[in-house]
Design a protein around this nucleic acid. Sequence first.
RNA 1: GGCCCCAUCGUCUAGCGGUCUAGGACAUCACCCUCUCACGGUGAAGACACGGGUUCGAACCCCGUUGGGGCUGCCA
Length: 471
Amino acid sequence: MPQQESSVIRVRFAPSPTGYFHVGGARTALYNWMLAKQSGGKFVLRIEDTDAERNKEEWVDGICNAMSWLGITWDEGPIRQSSRTQRHVEMALSLIEKGDAYYCDCRREDVEERNKASERTKQGYDGYCRERNLEKSPTTVLRYKVPADGSTTVNDLVRGEVVVANENIDDFVLLKANESPLFVLANVVDDIDMEISHVLRAEEHLPNTPKAVLLFKSFGKEAPLFAHVPVLVNEKRQKLSKRRDRVAVEDFKDKGFLPEAMINYLALLGWSPKDNREFMTLEEMTAEFSIEDVGHSPSFFDEKKMEHFNGVYIRALSDTDFVHLVLPFMEKSNWWEGSDENREKLFRLASITKERVSLLGQAPDLLMPIFAPSIVVDDTLFEKEVSPHSNLISQVAVLCQELDCFDAPSIEAMLRDLSATSEIPLRKLQAPIRVATTGAKAGLPLFELWEHTGRERIIERLIAASQNSNS
RNA sequence: GGCCCCAUCGUCUAGCGGUCUAGGACAUCACCCUCUCACGGUGAAGACACGGGUUCGAACCCCGUUGGGGCUGCCA
């Protein structure tokens, strides 16, 4: 096959704005991006909005924002397919003269009826109007006349050769009755005009690719290289669906996923580097990515594993970056006051917080006992963990009062001392006072937590706890 | 129903005819570390769908079966 190896790679990512941007689309976009960037090629963002009924402009913004957040940049676009309707129609009409297209006035019900009546095992359009030489009218669609014999081959970079007998390809619609262009037509015309070299998309498009190949041929153009990557599936092994599955990129952003972690995880769904390592930067992945090495079977999108990746990325963050990234999540809490003092405190808490969260959104819960003026202790938990130890708790309150300096080392020394004299292991001793001062059984290391909460509030909470136990 | 695609631990994968008593990661479990939790460390359990070939030799090649998925629109 003569191939344009010398010319630049031009790919396009072509979402239709019929819903939010989901992880499946993100992975397809990412693969396209890596394919283009590894050789200095161009990435075109094309919005496939030929179906005016289903598209909404706000989805376009959503897609662009989510892609930008992930770091998937585009060199051209977003180009609305709807802005090129005239060109699509013109190209479709040119096929009539070539004898490759014809008008058809069959209604869907008519076709179904005929199929039912005949012995035909296939269900699609039966070619009823092929030789009727209909004129254009408000009720006619324009169909492509698929050759009766022979077969059409799709040469796919990940699947290999896919051969389909032409008799199994229906005469598909090019132009609706209202003369608006349809997917395959618009796709092919735009790919030609935009000089797309590689069409990398999800496997769900494989069945209509022979139609595209036929069109390229009719237009006298060489088809681009195709690469159909497996779809992403849910736990029931069905293709991820915007409606059924909660997989919006934006939702993951809101939960506190880092774009780098998502990109890293997503890239590994269907592809892996030669040495099978998992943590890679976008640059490293781009350098090593190879479309031929993409797997052939669907991958389950495992949010748990992605969260693990996210935790690793969070822990690798500098304290400064962590504070910067976690601040928006803190600001969602009504107890958070964004003072310089609090930001400084947050910075000093960064390292012990980082290793306890796998999502940025988990940080506020951990930090609430320190920054919130008051805490809430669940009744059952209080009865179980706090009440039996009211004496101990009031004793600790006194010791806190007596401490020269209320910092972590002093607090630790004080509690270890108490542990030794009272013969209560530190691990047992910390439980009631932790619940009394934080409302939770687990959380940040107690000594640092107390230091940053401040002596006054800690003593206040300890006293309140011991008094509530007595009554 | 028809057409097409796919098939290694529960999941993501390594493996591209001999190095496989099948390696790694997530999840699970146990132990260690430890002020709780977490991080980290060590270890356990866990897979080549099945049947035929080809070959001295098959997870790797071929065929079939089974199972799964996608498409089947005047959606994309």
